[in-house]
């Protein structure tokens, strides 16, 4: 059961990472990136490293998307002004 869990979560991480790479729009990519962070946190937990998973959760689920979306917003606003 434990090995099956690891294999399934690894496949999910691979799928999420591929999906994140294939996106064109940065704002929508941030959503996929957040989902990738969540799957990575499960992977770390399943591999018995919950402390790494905790850090991944804090960074991946809220902070990275926030920074990407703020950057996108600033760049778009600047582009409109010029």
């Amino acid at each position: 059961m434990h090995d099956a869990l690891i294999v399934v979560v690894l496949l999910l991480v691979a799928a999420a990472a591929t999906g994140a790479v294939l996106q064109r729009d940065p704002a929508r990519q941030a959503v996929v990136l957040s989902a990738l962070g969540l799957t990575l946190a499960v992977l770390f937990t399943v591999l018995q490293a919950p402390d790494v998973g905790l850090a991944q959760l804090a960074v991946g689920s809220a902070v990275t998307p926030l920074m990407i979306l703020l950057t996108v917003r600033k760049v778009r606003r600047k582009g409109r002004r010029e």
Partner: peptide, 28 residues
């Protein structure tokens, strides 16, 4: 947990990777 990961997180990933921005946020 395995059933929830395959049956729940998988479709959510699919929803987050395709479609409109609203659908992605709901899936996430």
């Amino acid at each position: 947990a395995l059933a929830l990961v395959t049956g729940g997180l998988g479709p959510c990933l699919w929803g987050a990777a395709r479609g409109s921005a609203g659908r992605r946020v709901v899936a996430q």
